[in-house]
Design a binder for these strands. Structure first.
Length: 728
DNA sequence: ACGCCAGAAGTTTTT
DNA sequence: CTTCTGGCGT
C-alpha cells in the first residue's frame, strides 16, 4: 500500500503536453511559465507542486501563492487529490502576509492581536485623518484619498517617502493625510489590506536572518497570476527566493487587469531580466475554447502594444460564430439573454454552464430583474456582500473589540448599538478625553466615571465597559460559541428578533453568521476567534461562487478570471462601458488604460468554451439619463468571418444620412470618426478632425475646404455624413 | 437621543 | 436613478 503522501512521480506526468511536462519537471532555478488562456495552467501548477513535493522537497517546503482564496482552496484540494500531504502552504499573498505578521508582529510594529481593516474601516480612518489634518472632507473625498494612499502603499512608499517625492501642493497635502492615517492605524493596532503586503515586504528587507529562515523553509515558491503582482508582492516573492531562486512564476501578460490597484505588468515582462538564468516555457495550446472564439479574442487583444510574443492555438472544433447582439435598451438586452437561457434549457444546457459577465457591478441589476421575471435562479459573485451588511458588521465590531480593545473604529460602532443611551454628545466627549489622555477609547470608557462632562451618561458607559469585559472572558472559546454569545449578550440578537416581525432577513443573516463560524470551526477544529476574523476579512468576491448549485452565474469581468464556462454572455459592449471610461470621455484617454480594458475583454471572451455572445445597447441609463451609446471599438475589431450579427427586434432602418437635429445624435453615429466627410448647409464640405464623446454631449471639430475650422456640439450641429465615393 | 425627511452628491474594477 | 448626509423636530 503506497503511503498517502508519496504519489508516484511518473503518474504526475500523465496527460501533459511537452511544454507542460517541462514546466512540471523543471526542478531548480527560476522558471517563468507564460500560460495563455485555457492552456492548462492550473493543471501544470498543481502537478508541479505535487511533483516537487514527491521528488526533491517535502510538502512543507513548497509554497504556492494564488490570487484568490477560491483558487487557493481549489488548488489545495487538487494537490491533496494527487496524494500529497496537507503540510504544503497554499494561500493568497494577503493570507501569507497576515500569517507572517501574526508570527513576527513585534518587528512590524503591530500587536499580536492586530485587526485587519477592510475598505469600509479604511475609509473611516481616512476620514478621521483628514479631519485631524484640519482639512475638509468636502474637498478631500475619503474614497479618493484612500485610493491614493493605497496606491502609494502598493508602490511601497512610506508617508515620508511619499512626501519626499511629492511634487505639487495636492501631493504634499496627501502626504500629511497619509502620515496621520498610518499613525491612526498604529494607534488602533490595525493593519489595512495593503499593510498585509507592505509590512511583510519591509520585514523581509530589514531582517536578513528572518528572510533566510523563510527562504530555507519555503525552498520552492510558485506564484500564480504573476502579471497581477504589485511592487510589494514582487518584493516578497523576490526576497523569498533571493539565493536559491527557486521561483516559478506563472501568468499571462494579456490577462493583466489590475493595473489600477498597482499591479505592474512589467514584473512579468521583465522576469528574464530579474532572473537572467530563467527558463521560459510557453503554453500556447488552448484546450478550452473553439477556434472561432480564440480568433475573435485574438482580434481584440492584437491591438495592444504591451505584449509578449505568444500565439494561442487549439485542436478544438471551429465552433459556432461569436454572436453580437444589437439591443435597443438595457431592458431588451436583459430580456433577450433570459429568453436565450430559457431556450437553451431545451438543448440540454445546464444552468451552471451559463455565465453573464459585465464591467461594473451596477450592471447586474437589469439582468437580475429579467432573470427573476423569467423564474431563472442565479447567483451573483459578490461574496463580500454578506460581510458588508449592517447587522453582520455590528456583530463583528464586538468581536473585534474583544480581541483588540485599541480598535476605536470597532468601539465607535458597538458603543451605542443596540441603542443603550450613549448618544453622539457623550461619544464626542469620550473622544476628546481619549485624545487628551492619549489613550484608546476603550481605556477612556473604562474610567468614564472619573471624567468631566460625562455626567448622567457615566453609568451607561460604565455598563458598556462591563459588558465588554464580560465578553472578553469568552474570547478563548471556539469561534462559534463566541459569536453566538456575543450576538446574544450584546443585545443585538434581541433587537433583531423584535425587528423580525417586520423584516426577518437581518436576524437570519446573523444566524447564518453563527453557522459560518460553526462551519469554519468544524473544518479547522483548532481555530481561534482571531483566525476566524482574519478569514472573514480576507474573503473575496468570487470565493462564494459555487458551480455545483445548478444556477446561472453573474459576475464582473474582473471576477471571472481563472474560471471557465461553456456558455458566456458579455454585456454592455459600448464605448464608455467596455472600454469603461469614468468620465464618459472615450477619446484621448490613457493608452495604458485602454490596453487594460482590452485585456479585460480578452479575459472575459477566453473564459468561454463553446458559445460566446456579446451584447451592446443603443441606449443605456447613465445617472438616470438615457444616453445614446456607440458600439464598442472592441466589437468593431472583430473579424467578420467569426461573427454572427443579431438584432433581436425589427429595427427601424437607419435613415442613412439624416441631418442631426434637436439634441439627438445621428442614427449613423457608429460610422462617424476622425476623417469622416461631412456637409454643413452653409459651410459646405468638410472633414472631421476631432470627435470627443463626453458624458452627455459629443464635441466635433470640422476642417472645411476653405481652410477654416469650426467646432460644434454634435447633437446640435447641422451636419450630415457624406460617403467618400459620393464626392470622388 | 433618535428618527424622519429633504436635499445633495456621486457612481469601476478587489485582496 | 439611487444612496448618503445633515438638519430639524419630537
Amino acid at each position: 500500500m503506497p503511503a498517502p503522501n508519496q504519489p508516484n512521480p511518473a503518474s504526475l506526468l500523465e496527460n501533459l503536453n511537452d511544454p507542460q511536462r517541462a514546466a512540471v519537471t523543471h526542478s531548480d532555478g527560476p522558471l517563468l511559465v507564460l500560460a495563455g488562456a485555457g492552456s492548462g495552467k492550473t493543471r501544470v501548477i498543481t502537478r508541479r507542486a505535487a511533483y516537487l513535493a514527491s521528488t526533491v522537497a517535502q510538502p512543507r517546503e513548497v509554497l504556492a501563492i494564488t490570487f484568490t482564496n477560491k483558487a487557493a482552496n481549489e488548488m489545495r484540494e487538487r494537490i491533496l487529490a494527487l496524494g500529497v500531504g496537507p503540510e504544503m502552504t497554499v494561500c493568497t499573498f494577503h493570507a501569507l502576509g497576515a500569517r507572517l505578521l501574526r508570527i513576527h508582529h513585534e518587528r512590524a510594529d503591530l500587536p499580536a492581536n492586530f485587526t485587519i481593516y477592510d475598505t469600509d474601516d479604511q475609509r473611516k480612518v481616512v476620514k478621521q485623518a483628514i479631519e485631524l489634518a484640519e482639512l475638509s472632507t468636502a474637498n478631500w473625498s475619503p474614497a479618493a484619498v484612500h485610493a491614493r494612499i493605497s496606491r502609494a502603499k502598493n508602490d511601497m512608499l512610506t508617508p515620508t517617502e511619499f512626501e519626499e517625492q511629492a511634487d505639487d501642493w495636492s501631493d504634499r497635502v496627501l502626504a500629511r493625510i497619509y502620515t496621520e492615517y498610518q499613525r491612526l492605524l498604529e494607534q488602533n493596532g490595525a493593519a489595512d489590506f495593503d499593510d498585509l503586503l507592505l509590512k511583510p515586504a519591509r520585514l523581509l528587507q530589514n531582517h536578513e536572518v528572518l528572510r533566510r529562515q523563510l527562504e530555507q523553509r519555503y525552498r520552492y515558491v510558485l506564484i500564480d497570476e504573476y502579471q497581477d503582482t504589485n511592487q510589494a508582492q514582487y518584493v516578497v516573492a523576490h526576497l523569498l527566493t533571493l539565493e536559491q531562486a527557486n521561483i516559478c512564476a506563472t501568468g499571462d501578460p494579456d490577462q493583466s487587469i489590475y493595473g489600477w490597484r498597482g499591479a505592474d505588468i512589467g514584473n512579468i515582462l521583465h522576469f528574464e531580466e530579474d532572473y537572467p538564468s530563467a527558463t521560459v516555457i510557453r503554453l500556447e495550446q488552448n484546450y478550452r475554447s473553439t477556434q472561432r472564439i480564440l480568433a475573435a479574442a485574438d482580434a481584440v487583444i492584437a491591438a495592444n502594444f504591451q505584449r509578449k510574443e505568444k500565439s494561442l492555438w487549439t485542436e478544438n472544433p471551429e465552433g459556432a460564430r461569436v454572436r453580437v447582439v444589437d439591443c435597443e435598451s438595457t431592458t431588451e438586452e436583459a430580456e433577450w439573454i433570459s429568453a436565450q437561457i430559457l431556450s437553451s434549457d431545451k438543448q440540454g444546457v445546464s444552468r451552471s454552464d451559463i455565465a453573464v459577465f459585465y464591467r461594473i457591478n451596477a450592471m447586474s441589476r437589469a439582468i437580475e430583474e429579467a432573470l427573476l421575471r423569467a423564474g431563472i435562479p442565479y447567483q451573483v459573485a459578490r461574496g463580500t456582500e454578506f460581510y458588508n451588511r449592517k447587522e453582520i458588521k455590528d456583530v463583528l465590531a464586538y468581536l473585534r473589540l474583544l480581541i483588540n480593545p485599541a480598535d476605536d473604529i470597532a468601539l465607535l460602532r458597538a458603543i451605542n448599538n443596540p441603542p443603550r443611551g450613549i448618544g453622539a454628545t457623550t461619544v464626542s466627549r469620550l473622544r476628546n478625553h481619549a485624545a487628551t489622555l492619549g489613550a484608546s477609547l476603550m481605556e477612556t470608557v473604562k474610567q468614564a466615571q472619573t471624567l468631566d462632562g460625562i455626567g448622567r451618561s457615566a453609568a451607561r458607559v460604565q455598563e458598556f465597559a462591563e459588558l465588554i469585559a464580560e465578553l472578553q472572558g469568552l474570547a478563548d472559546q471556539p469561534p462559534r460559541t463566541v459569536v453566538e454569545q456575543v450576538a446574544r449578550r450584546s443585545g443585538l440578537l434581541a433587537e433583531l428578533t423584535q425587528e423580525a416581525e417586520v423584516n426577518r432577513s437581518p436576524l437570519d443573516n446573523v444566524n447564518e453568521l453563527i453557522n459560518a463560524a460553526a462551519d469554519f470551526q468544524s473544518e479547522r477544529p483548532e481555530a481561534t476567534l482571531i483566525d476566524w476574523l482574519e478569514y472573514t476579512s480576507l474573503l473575496g468576491d468570487t470565493d462564494t461562487v459555487d458551480s455545483s448549485r445548478g444556477v446561472v452565474t453573474l459576475m464582473t469581468l474582473h471576477a471571472c478570471k481563472g474560471l471557465e464556462f461553456p456558455v458566456v454572455f458579455i454585456i454592455g459592449l459600448e464605448d464608455g462601458t467596455l472600454p469603461f471610461s469614468r468620465t464618459g470621455e472615450i477619446n484621448g484617454r490613457d493608452d495604458d488604460e485602454e490596453e487594460e480594458e482590452r485585456r479585460l475583454c480578452f479575459v472575459g471572451m477566453t473564459r468561454t468554451m463553446h458559445t460566446l455572445t456579446m451584447t451592446h445597447c443603443r441606449y443605456r441609463l447613465l445617472r438616470g439619463a438615457e444616453t445614446r451609446m456607440v458600439k464598442s471599438r472592441f466589437l468593431r475589431a472583430l473579424p467578420e468571418a467569426e461573427v454572427e450579427w443579431i438584432s433581436p427586434v425589427e429595427q427601424k432602418p437607419p435613415s442613412h444620412r439624416s441631418a442631426v437635429s434637436h439634441g439627438r445624435l445621428p442614427d449613423d453615429i457608429e460610422l462617424w470618426e476622425v476623417g469622416t466627410l461631412v456637409r454643413h448647409p452653409s459651410r459646405g464640405l468638410g472633414q472631421i478632425t476631432t470627435l470627443r464623446r463626453g458624458h452627455k454631449r459629443t464635441h466635433v471639430r470640422v476642417a472645411f475646404q476653405d481652410g477654416a475650422d469650426q467646432s460644434w456640439v454634435l447633437e446640435f450641429a447641422d451636419l450630415t455624413r457624406v460617403d467618400y465615393d459620393e464626392v470622388g
